[in-house]
Amino acid sequence: MKTNFVMLHTVTRIVSFIILSFSVYLFFAGHNAPGGGFIGGLMMAGALVLLYVSFDMDRIKKVLPIDYTQMIGLGLIIAILTGLNSLVFGDPFLTQYFDYFQWPFMGEVELTTALPFDLGIFLVVVGVALLSILTIAEDVS
């Protein structure tokens, strides 16, 4: 017997979209305003948890076939690789670089190597939060 949560599902669809976009914004804003990998990642995790809670697990798995264990590994690798990058220039491990570039339509944009590093953190945080929650949730016995 399945209960139908029309209200919940509709609201979730809209709200989770807003949270997801906001988490991406927070992640990119991180360098210059409150936000960053940790906060963005946690926000993204919150949005995904909302999805899992309101819809059932199987359906979300079909839509988002993500292996969160691999996500953690991927995040760590990205973070380490950005760190190794500085060794090429003869600087100590994890030295970050930044510069300003002119882009069409967007004007001057600052690009930093801290961003991919933060992306690694972001991925690990999302992975850890969801992996923990999903593993506990799937544990039936």
Binding site: N32, G36, G37, A79, L94, T112, D118, I121
Partner: peptide, 20 residues
């Protein structure tokens, strides 16, 4: 580090290894 958010700059740049 080219960042305005000092907390984040410490996390990802100055003390990057700790964060890693």
């Amino acid at each position: 580090a080219g960042g305005y958010n000092m907390v984040n700059v410490i996390l990802v740049d100055f003390r990057g290894l700790d964060t890693l």
